[in-house]
Design a protein around this nucleic acid. Structure first.
Lengths: 210, 210
DNA sequence: TGTGAGCTAAGGGTTTTCCCTTATGTGAGG
DNA sequence: CCTCACATAAGGGAAAACCCTTAGCTCACA
């Protein structure tokens, strides 16, 4: 029996996954929650074999929960569930200790395969992510550098529609500084303007539309 | 027994909903598909009591499927499943004959309640949508006018990051014309700039991030 | 102790967006 | 037939975004 835990704030989806996995022989969903901190409590007395962790959360809580979980239980096998093929975070996530990436639009077979692979000590990365990564190495530096924390701040406000001047006021810095950050972000994301940037930010989990 | 059909291109989610509903007494999922045209074929020989229809599709196929379904079977009770509380389409959707709106982030109880209500001849609209609509009537004209088809064209290209000039070239019209459309869209959406516009477009199913 | 990354900031330029106005043509519907 | 909505287009100006450069400061790290 493979003991599985699911963390996803999306009630219907989580419940659905639970039932889908429950149908599969040898799979046993021992825990599911919408709240990362409840999972950390759970970890104090039980260790699941495989964890499905939604990354796509308000206030970047998926990544945080992953890191804290692996501090507590470094042997934990975590598969990241993401809405989009997020390639900018993949090194961080792998460094954080994630064993797999699977897209929310995948199907039952793929999910089953991923869980089986990861449980038996392997990795699983969905085809879309692998293809994107391959394409990125061809285009060398395109969208590879990760953002600094200040850049993430600025990106967040850009995505909510604030102007450079407004962001400057909000952060108590010069508009020229915000401009520099914006430009650096544009280069790192390898996009031409705010429109492309916002789409990129959503796809790469820097910003989520609620 | 309430016979239910589910149309959603998101395999795991659809399968999950199917199992969730299958658990409920009196509910019977008689059909589920990722493809709207397959549902139209199905409708030729069977009429479900309630249809759960995902609206959030590539190439606006959810709305189209809804309209065609109701042409074939006007008595059909369709509940729209949406990712966001999309208020700009609500009149069109109600005119099209939809009996309810429910958010994908809702839970099992709410879904069950919605299906029961709609099946017995009622309506169901999730709280979030009702609140947004109430707020909109206070702010009178804010974000109420619907877009023309040309405006939707332009909006699509704005969301993919093309500049006014590039859109003009693509559509073989003057940049000045594109500018007029952009401004009209900004006013109808009641937003200040492209950044806000893109978020608005995603939330209101004018553009979806794939 | 220097080297580098990151935040800060300014100068100075081009391009694009945003925001008015006015105006013509066309097709649908009363 | 006449209005009305829509698409088209232009002028003209203000604001914002975009794109370089240079440069000082701090903090961590080797």
């Amino acid at each position: 029996m493979i003991k599985i835990a699911i963390i996803d704030d999306h009630d219907l989806f989580r419940e659905g996954i639970r039932l889908v996995l429950g149908q599969i022989e040898d799979f046993d969903v021992v825990f599911d929650t919408s709240d990362g901190s409840l999972f950390l409590e759970f970890l104090q007395h039980t260790i699941p074999d495989v964890v499905l962790m939604d990354i796509n959360m308000p206030i970047i809580d998926g990544v945080e929960t992953t890191e804290k979980s692996l501090e507590m239980r470094p042997e934990l096998k975590i598969i990241a569930l993401t809405m989009f093929a997020d390639t900018t975070h993949y090194t961080q996530m792998i460094n954080a200790g994630v064993k797999g990436f699977i897209l929310k639009k995948s199907n039952k077979n793929e999910l089953q395969h991923a869980i089986t692979m990861v449980n038996s000590g392997g990795n699983y990365f969905s085809q879309e992510i692998i293809q994107k990564l391959a394409f990125q190495t061809i285009n060398s530096n395109a969208g590879n550098d990760s953002l600094t924390s200040r850049e993430m701040d600025i990106l967040h406000w850009v995505c909510t529609g604030l102007t450079t001047h407004e962001i400057a006021d909000k952060l108590f810095i010069s508009a020229k500084t915000v401009e520099v950050h914006r430009n650096n972000i544009l280069h790192k994301a390898d996009v031409r303007n705010s429109a492309e940037l916002i789409i990129w930010a959503v796809k790469n989990n820097y910003f989520s539309i609620e």
